[in-house]
């Protein structure tokens, strides 16, 4: 099947463990409540450009229909809920952070969306045996880096899915000014890796799945203040958030804000790999 010498799940675990060794503490659910406003602003950029592009990838393959039952693992502020819900039968959003749940409700209310349910839990706590093959489409966006036991969680995703599983995965590579900021704060400590792709593809492939991929680009537009919250949460996980650290972040945000039609904002463009597969399909010769 693949180069037998490489164990992709082992590599995934190693990257996870390496990241943990340089963290003061792991992310807590409350961190996502703190981040809900900036995350919501980012995902709402250009009228939910990111979520709409993922929707388009799946719609043009006829994987989304008006009677689809959809579940999402880690819905954040409604990144996919808002673009997808008008085009499906019902949307179930698994999201544990109170702040994110509030943002989903606000954003849904603003868009007149009512065909959704929120399960206020982390994915690992969801009883999948009670929802076996209940959903036509399972979605998850930039969440899987939190799962050390990646195939265990993928198999749980597949268990609730009777149609298509889709993971939107980040490339996780950082360069340029973002890396300069890290080095100015953290010195020689290597930038922590959150690589989801192409690792997830290799893991699925090694486990006999038949995944397709489309790479999309989308923009994120945030005020410096909102982005400051993001950096505060992020750097607090790795170091003491001192006035000196805050000063470096302030300067960085000033340097990278630009005049946009919305006002002074920080503009970023991201690439994301939209990976989807039929959980029942296997490569020939695979178990």
């Amino acid at each position: 099947m693949m180069d037998g010498k490489i164990d992709w799940e082992e590599i995934w675990e190693k990257i996870y463990d390496d990241r943990m060794t340089i963290m003061k503490r792991d992310y807590a659910v409350d961190d996502w409540t703190t981040r809900s406003q900036d995350y919501s602003e980012s995902r709402r950029s250009n009228n939910y450009e990111y979520g709409n592009k993922v929707l388009e990838v799946l719609r043009k393959r006829h994987l989304v229909s008006s009677d689809s039952q959809v579940i999402e693992v880690g819905s954040g502020p409604g990144t996919f809920v808002i673009p997808f819900a008008p085009h499906v039968g019902h949307y179930t959003a698994v999201e544990p952070a109170k702040g994110m749940i509030e943002r989903i409700r606000e954003n849904a209310n603003e868009s007149g969306i009512t065909n959704y349910t929120i399960i206020p839990k982390i994915w690992q706590e969801v009883d999948v045996s009670a929802s076996r093959e209940k959903f036509d489409l399972l979605l998850s966006s930039t969440v899987i880096w939190m799962f050390r036991d990646i195939m265990e969680q993928v198999k749980r995703m597949e268990e609730v899915c009777r149609g298509t599983c889709c993971i939107a995965a980040g490339f996780g590579s950082v360069s340029g000014p973002e890396l300069d900021l890290w080095e100015s704060i953290m010195g020689d400590i290597p930038y922590p890796q959150y690589p989801e792709y192409p690792y997830i593809y290799n893991i699925l492939y090694q486990n006999g799945r038949v995944p397709n991929v489309e790479v999309i680009s989308s923009s994120s537009i945030r005020t410096a203040e909102r982005l400051r919250t993001m950096y505060k949460v992020f750097y607090s996980l790795y170091t003491d958030y001192t006035p000196e650290v805050e000063e470096k972040i302030t300067r960085y945000l000033e340097d990278h804000s630009q005049d946009l039609p919305e006002g002074k904002r920080v503009f970023r463009e991201y690439q994301t790999a939209v990976v989807w597969w039929n959980p029942k399909q296997r490569q020939a010769g695979s178990n």
Partner: peptide
Amino acid sequence: FDQFHCLFNLLNSKGMRPNVTV
């Protein structure tokens, strides 16, 4: 030798980020 798998990773390692259709 799994040519597809090697090419997939080779192209990604070069930053080409190809789409994949099976």
